[in-house]
Amino acid sequence: MREAEALRAAYDGVTAALSPLSPMELLAPTRCHGWTVADVVHHLTSDAQRALVALATPAAGPATRTFVTYWQSTPSPAPDWESAEREAAASAWAGRRAASVARSPELLAGLWRSTSVAAVHAAFAAPHAFVATQGHVLSTPDLLTTLATEAVIHHLDLLLGLPTAPEPAVSTLDGLLALHGGVRPADWGIEDYLLKGSGRLALSTTDRTTLGPSAGLFPLLG
């Protein structure tokens, strides 16, 4: 299954970036504001654990979300920016506290390696057409696409503090991504699409002109 291959490449890429790191390098900053490399690894491990649960949780179809609509949050009133900032800070702080339970960042990296391998094995062996996760029903290929997408984005997050680390396997996502209907300018590579689509990089004036009304959809990942 192509989606399982994409997940394996995404998870292997994260592992390759972590493998040579010292304890201090695992505490380097990332694109995720307030999170170190170890914090991102903890988050990714939780995602791989969720994958294991989802792949063992069959659901009756049809799907309630696809790999496109999965990222869309429920519409809400105009945001109170101060409250939104406080919520984001509280979420980042909770992630840091959860990761700090481990006795060392190396233990987090080791847990990632074993959990990610198990998740990939489960992905290739997945027997169910539809699975349940986070209150939604997705087809198994769509679930794997969301997992691979998130792993590649977080791999890109790691590179802020690890500039010499291997790049993620973004090419494995080519042809799989169609976030919010496939809004992707022709001159954007997949990395641009992921960083701008997730709000890591701001849209330039040229981007907004090219996108037109679709610029209002960004960031694409909720």
Rank of each mutant, 00 (worst) to 15 (best):
E191R: 15
F218E: 01
D47P: 02
V68Q: 15
V68P: 05
R97G: 03
L26P: 13
T146G: 04
V53L: 11
L173W: 14
A123K: 11
P163W: 10
R97P: 00
D12I: 00
H180W: 10
D207Y: 08
L173S: 12
L147K: 00
A88K: 13
L44S: 08
D192W: 01
L158Y: 04
L221E: 03
T210M: 02
S198K: 00
V53A: 14
G95E: 12
A38K: 05
P163N: 13
L201W: 01
A165R: 01
E5N: 14
D192C: 06
W93E: 15
G182C: 04
W93Y: 09
A148D: 01
G181N: 07
E5Q: 15
V120E: 07
A151L: 01
G182Q: 05
L108M: 13
S214M: 03
A28T: 03
R113N: 14
H136V: 11
P75V: 09
V68D: 15
A90L: 07
L18R: 09
A98Y: 02
A16Y: 04
G110Y: 05
A54E: 02
L177G: 00
L156H: 14
A51H: 10
A89M: 11
E106H: 12
V183L: 07
E82N: 12
S100P: 03
P185W: 00
W112P: 13
G189M: 04
P77G: 09
P127N: 14
T64G: 11
A119G: 03
L44W: 00
E25Q: 15
W71L: 09
P29C: 02
A119W: 06
R208F: 00
G222L: 06
A9T: 09
R50N: 11
D80K: 05
W112F: 15
L144P: 01
G212L: 05
H180C: 13
M1R: 15
Y193H: 10
G175N: 07
A54S: 12
A125D: 10
S91A: 14
L108F: 14
F218D: 00
T146M: 05
T145M: 10
H128N: 08
A54V: 06
